[in-house]
Amino acid sequence: MGDGPKRRLPLVGGGAPGAPSPRSGGAPGAASPRGATAAPEKRKLPVLQSGGDDEGEDRPPWHWIALGTVATFIAWLPLAGLVNMLLRRMLERAGDAEAPIQVRLAMVGLNVVAFALAGVAGGYLVGRFGGRAGRREAAASGAVVATLAWALALSEGAPAGALGWALLLIVMVAIGAAASYAGGSAGLRGRSGGAPKAR
């Protein structure tokens, strides 16, 4: 066998120095400028669209009145149960005639404190996560809770008279709205990145 000409296999990605890349669109045989390096091809990464990061802000503000009402009730019920359990034990231990009056006054005062704390908690939820909702919706949720609690007490038939019940409603609504308004203000201050335009 005669020795024929040796063939060289082409290397992938290789090429003669100065040979243009097929992507560069240069003419065959044209040498690249001396000292120039081929620019890497730019790749565009796919942009992922955010999927509902501001979902809470899309809710109508009045939705947060209902959510604040539910949150206030959830916070108030265990607090009221704990307060009344402690006061019931105090009432059972009282033996003289003046002790029940003091215990009843303490019962009213501690229940007011428990209701106010629950209003602050519910209002804070509205102010912190309420999107376009703000102090006004937080105060409205506290007023709704106070009205429902007043209606529940009225249905039990406690003797208070029409004037007494009217005054009790005003006092409860004022306490609930004020406490929830304060909680909503604290929630607005706690928002990350600054609070949106809320009332």
Rank of each mutant, 00 (worst) to 15 (best):
D54Y: 08
A66L: 07
R135C: 12
G183V: 06
R136S: 11
S185A: 13
G194T: 11
V47R: 02
A27W: 09
P10E: 12
A166G: 05
K197R: 12
M172V: 11
L91R: 04
L110N: 01
E55F: 12
G13A: 09
I65A: 04
G14R: 13
R104E: 12
V12A: 11
A140G: 11
L169C: 03
E92Q: 06
E137Q: 15
T37K: 07
M85E: 12
A139S: 09
P17I: 01
G119Y: 00
R88L: 14
A149L: 08
V145A: 14
A16M: 10
E41H: 06
F129P: 01
R132D: 10
G134W: 01
G4R: 10
P33W: 03
G187W: 00
A16F: 08
A174F: 12
P28T: 15
P196W: 01
L11W: 13
S155D: 13
A162T: 13
V145C: 14
L67N: 08
R34N: 06
P100G: 06
E137T: 13
L188S: 02
S180A: 15
E92L: 10
A198R: 03
A182N: 07
F129Q: 06
G123T: 07
G157R: 12
G25C: 08
W165K: 02
P5E: 14
S192N: 02
G193K: 02
L86D: 15
H63A: 15
E55S: 14
H63V: 15
S50I: 07
G52S: 11
V108M: 14
A162V: 09
Q102F: 04
A166Y: 05
V145Y: 02
V12Y: 06
A116T: 09
V108C: 12
L105N: 09
L163T: 10
S141T: 04
A153K: 05
L152P: 02
F115K: 07
A30C: 07
L45D: 05
D96C: 04
M85Q: 09
R132A: 14
V173N: 04
A39Q: 12
G81Q: 09
L79R: 01
F73C: 14
G35S: 07
V103P: 04
R89T: 12
G142C: 06
S180K: 01
R34T: 00
R34A: 13
E156D: 12
G119V: 09
A75K: 00
L125W: 09
L77Q: 08
G127V: 00
R93A: 15
P17D: 08
A151R: 11
H63K: 11
V47Q: 03
G119M: 03
R199G: 11
L91H: 05
L79E: 01
P61Y: 00
L45H: 05
V47Y: 02
L117W: 08
L154N: 11
A19C: 10
L87N: 05
G184W: 00
A27C: 14
A166C: 05
P60G: 12
P22Q: 05
Q102S: 07
L79V: 09
A158W: 03
V171Q: 04
I74N: 03
P60V: 06
V112Y: 08
G190M: 08
E92I: 04
P5S: 10
